[in-house]
Design a protein around this nucleic acid. Sequence first.
DNA 1: CGGATTTGACCCGCGC
DNA 2: GCGCGGGTCAAATCCG
Length: 320
Amino acid sequence: MSEEKKDLYHQDPFFYNQHEINQSSLFPFFNDNNPSVYNHPVTQTLQGFDPSFMTFTDCLHGSMDYNTLSRAFDMSCNSPSGHQNHHLITPIDTNLKKQAAMGDSAGTSENPSTPNSSVSASSSNEAAGEEESDKSKKDKQPQGCEEDGDEAKSKKANKPKKKEKRQREPRFAFLTKSEIDHLEDGYRWRKYGQKAVKNSPYPRSYYRCTSQKCTVKKRVERNFQDPSIVITTYEGQHNHQCPATLRGNAAGMLSPSLLACASIRPSFPQQLLTQFLPTNNQVDPNSMFYRNLSAQQQLQLPDYGLLQDLVPSFSNRQKP
DNA sequence: CGGATTTGACCCGCGC
DNA sequence: GCGCGGGTCAAATCCG
């Protein structure tokens, strides 16, 4: 990424979307100041594709491409109004990022919304596969070679010389207005690194899912231009159930975000639905939201049904 | 004491 | 080839 682009990115979260990755979804719903925003863009957004077949989860699983998602979301993205509680959901393709990083050629000069500029999920999944093999290679390496003493010390220098381009899993970035850096999403994370971010006073933290064999990672950083905005980037897909689900999920015992987590399939980027919910952390356990979700629904409800529960207007629009 | 966090070192890809 | 920056490792430290 060029310096100029980086600066733009920090100054304007939307730049992340429009200029760097060409894909985005801006969710100006659940505006704290406007409860009616409930039935606003998300409804439109989800009507962009049949949610019974095309869920966000499906997207992550590769059954729909980013193009579709982007188009659907774009229906709700174009309003720059109400910066109060914007949430950006960004399917990031690392190849696109690289293109953008290459300079003006790919990322900035094209129309950000050009459908052809997106990359299908399948290609991303291929990349994910390669990444996985690459990663597992890396992870297994210490155990694989039985080295001792000095050899162990120099193990990093003895890495396999085979040069495979490192590929990354599909990423999804969320912009969340929050005082808390590490937002609760129902999964357990272990911090494994922290780096200073260039041109930003706020560090970037690296987290890894603590579940065995789960390779999901996330990065958390603050927008230095607007410190109240947390940028969370998920990479990979959970291969296990949400711990919050397993812990037992009596209604009213879980925070809305955990409940949302429990309501969906494991690989879903939980914060997405977290953002669907009112974020005032003081949700009445007797509220419609809680009462509408039975334990079974929480676990098995199709996304469509879930959204009906979460977004009443969604139901209304679907079934006038 | 075990798990989580911190933090400096290291690796890797990329641009110049 | 070199330097830079992002990402990861792992020993040290913290903490419940």
